[in-house]
Design a protein around this nucleic acid. Structure first.
Lengths: 223, 223
DNA sequence: AAGTAGTCTTACTCATCAGTAGGTAAGCCT
DNA sequence: AGGCTTACCTACTGATGAGTAAGACTACTT
């Protein structure tokens, strides 16, 4: 046995004749686990069915093909995450406070849902068109959200000029930094979500803070 | 034909009886292309052999198994990239100047080697242990390099305190931001490497700049 | 009790590759 | 010329894994 058994802990209780909705949840839970562990291609439907404690044809009956199953995973997890973050952001608040809350919610979610995170971050991005599209859509929404926030921050400070068409790449960079920090976190699990969030704020906000005030960095400024 | 043909432009000239070293280069070139296009698992050795204009057994004879071939790709491209960046960084320079040069070299390399970048960034990270290790090693070196640079920057400003054990995650975040910007760049190819590099500097250095001066962001600072 | 709708299984088919066996032929030495 | 090495090929094997056919069991109707 070269491959580790993904199940192991929870030997499928093989409960009988459960309603469809319940089975679908079980299947999705299993699929997220297996996909996150093995990656899309290396994951087999047989293993998903094993972990879910159900036979393979049921998966095809309920969720369709492997592609459709994976897409369903992405969508469910992306929605869960966006809801977790969206839930704490209040448009009437200070942009800085909003960013802090969002970032904190992000790290809290990742800390509590490693598998979801793996599926979204590592797997979805690297597979063919259908998922990349699905994922890109979610990321685009996140970036748009942050980008709008930065625009508002810039506007509030009365220095909106720098921002025209510039906040989007910066928002992209910020999400990238967040993803990288989440990655780093996997190897330093002793850190709290709050500590991680603070790191990202220090990197980004103190940087953005200066940009917002019109203090930009440029090449030939060097001493 | 559902799959796009990865070759297409360059119909393999089928030159005959070339020396081994040349063939190996051709095979690696083809492999990088196919892996970057399809991803590790979806790429088939048959397609690599097609694109390389050589038969499959030659690949096995020269480069070994599929895993070994992929590992060889990663190593070659990672080395090329590290050399491109390392070549412009001079330890005697100002940290800020060093960072600027490194960042610029990074975007220049990515701009000129999209395929290499795809293989390194998207594919290598998501496959099993052997490659993740190979890749993590490269990334670790990059992060260590940046981390050391930040330490020096902090020391130079006489505010080394904040930096103890703190620069590594920040360096990780910086590389993540760089990767995300490179990704964003793929959809906005009209941007110059210099413009991309400046974006990253604005985000990171202006942020780091404050940190270095002991001006850190913290949660309950909010207005 | 008999129909029927929904749950669930075993046991296949069939395509796709990784990897190889066993060979041909071209250049390069004497 | 004849041998020897290296480049190169066609044509297989064997495993894995997506997807399905065909039916069995259960429980809820009427």
């Amino acid at each position: 046995m070269t491959k580790k058994d993904v199940a192991g802990e929870t030997p499928p209780p093989r409960a009988k004749r459960l309603p469809r909705a319940v089975r679908e949840r079980q299947i999705l839970d299993a699929a997220v686990r297996v996909f996150s562990e093995r990656g899309y291609h290396a994951a087999s439907m047989d293993e998903v069915s094993d972990v879910a404690g159900i036979s393979k044809p049921m998966i095809y009956a309920y969720l369709g093909s492997k592609e459709e199953l994976f897409a369903a995973c992405i969508q469910r997890e992306a929605t869960r995450m966006m809801e977790a973050i969206g839930g704490v952001v209040d448009v009437h608040l200070d942009p800085e406070e909003q960013l802090w809350r969002g970032v904190l919610a992000f790290f809290t979610f990742v800390g509590e849902n490693r598998d979801s995170w793996q599926v979204l971050h590592r797997q979805a991005g690297t597979q063919g068109a259908p998922f990349a599209a699905e994922l890109a859509e979610g990321r685009r929404r996140a970036i748009a959200m942050i980008s709008a926030l930065l625009d508002r921050a810039a506007g509030k400070e009365g220095v909106g000029a720098f921002a025209e068409g510039q906040t989007e790449p910066l928002a992209a960079a910020l999400t990238g930094a967040g993803e990288a920090l989440a990655e780093w976190w996997l190897e330093h699990p002793e850190e709290s979500p709050k500590a991680m969030a603070r790191r990202l704020m220090n990197l980004s906000w103190m940087g953005f803070g200066n940009l917002v005030l019109g203090r930009a960095w440029h090449p030939d400024r060097t001493a």
